[in-house]
Design a protein around this nucleic acid. Structure first.
Lengths: 250, 250
DNA sequence: GTTTGTTCTTGATCTACCTCAATCCGCGGG
DNA sequence: CCCGCGGATTGAGGTAGATCAAGAACAAAC
């Protein structure tokens, strides 16, 4: 069921390699950022890397929450399904983000890859040991957690008070900023998700998302390159709309 | 401006009293829950208690975030205002909850009391020292943070996918559960907030909240006692609606 | 008990977004 | 090159909830 099980045999060798962590592209932004070389070496032995394809699940909603994951490459989607089948996208995650920490015994959300990528898997108990050995790691974890909480509050604000266009504009801006924080430059970037995914994230339908994007295009705020490529041509306009400046926007 | 400043003189004596923490009603549910007597004694010297009246601000959006607060008695509201004046209620907080932690230098949200109550104020830097002295405290803080993150995701789900009645039902249920976790029993409990506050929390107008509550009353799911008193007479019905069972609800 | 102000309720209308439906685009395979 | 299919776009009409407006219930002060 879980594709990680299927790929385990293939990847097991990698996990024990001495200095995988040293080569990790997310070393400078993820959980491990504050660790020194010795600690990273230690960490290599505790973690397993897994390569994943688009649409692969990292974990399912309801799975026992035995591991914590770091997304080291690629983009993932956090989803939650309701008893009656409705689905919501809780968030998107990028290289360096942590996935799967929960106070409960089971995952309340599911996580699936949107692109190819890799995750780094850590046993929850071993992480607790690591916390004891490297207090700076626990501090880092707490920081990331508080940051995520702040981001959640932004999203709550957007869902509760923003119009459709404001939400889409804010989403595009936050994506660009997330990419820039990870070193991506250049005017055109890729939407990692379909209109349907974006809609489920923003509490809108895919048609409404599409209409908002079309409106931005017609106003000359963005240019589209294929379905997923977006070039921002009027960033201030987009930012103004997406951050709640309301009708006073320039 | 900040009412804490105004009441400081009045309360300063209290803060230095040796064993305030021992008498603290929130000792068993708040941040300090895992601390032993010696640590609590230590903590007493680091924290200041403040009594607050309804509508008093604990801190304002934009204030420098120099302190962390524990709400020891009463109910508070977290709000956020947008550049154009729109306001959203990000959440409600009860005895034992922590307020005001943020990764930034300024508070991104404001916090105001809805009832009379008391808060316990801790300097952020001193808290870091305490973390070093009592690692169990940092662990506790992390736990509370992760729990809050899970609650935020629930709220995101509700705002994005729930109908007005579902949101109001879910809100009432979550309130009751929060009260019960704090020892409150009995069939009738008080809504801590006005219809307007509830609406701003749920992304609805006060009229829509009122209509939902009226609908529940007409269905015999609740009885009202004055404006804020609610007695739940059909809890399964409310829970079914409020947890996303959709049209299949019994 | 009356007054006064606040909060809540209920009704009528309006609108942003949803829903349903048709067409279009872009990309990979034959 | 053309086909086929999963997305994306665009249009037309419906609806949940917003908005505007009038009263009613409640609470606190006198």
């Amino acid at each position: 069921m879980n594709p990680l099980d299927a790929t385990r045999a293939l990847m097991d060798g990698l996990g024990s390699e001495a200095n995988v962590c040293m080569k990790c592209g997310s070393r400078s932004i993820g959980l491990c950022a504050p660790l020194d070389v010795a600690a990273l070496d230690d960490m290599s032995g505790e973690s397993e890397r897994h390569a994943l394809e688009p649409r692969d699940a990292i974990f399912h909603q309801g799975d026992p929450a035995r591991h914590i994951y770091t997304l080291t490459e690629g983009t993932a989607r956090l989803t939650r399904v309701l008893p009656d089948g409705r689905q919501a996208v809780i968030g998107f995650r990028f290289a360096g983000d942590i996935l799967g920490f929960t106070p409960d015994k089971e995952h309340a959300v599911g996580a699936e890859m949107l692109t190819k990528g890799t995750v780094c898997r850590l046993d929850r108990r071993r992480l607790e040991h690591l916390f004891r050995r490297y207090p700076v790691l626990e501090r880092r974890f707490l920081d990331l957690c508080v940051k995520e909480l702040a981001a959640s509050q932004d999203h709550i604000l957007a869902l509760g008070r923003f119009s459709a266009e404001e939400r889409v504009a804010g989403f595009i801006i936050s994506l660009v900023e997330a990419q820039e924080r990870r070193g991506r430059v250049g005017p055109v970037f890729d939407l990692p998700a379909t209109r349907a995914d974006i809609g489920e994230f923003l509490g809108l339908t895919l048609e409404t998302v599409s209409r908002a994007i079309s409106a931005f295009r017609k106003r000359g705020w963005i240019r589209l390159h294929g379905h997923s490529g977006i070039e921002i041509t009027d960033r201030p306009a987009l930012m103004g709309l997406g951050s709640g400046e309301g009708v006073h926007a320039a």
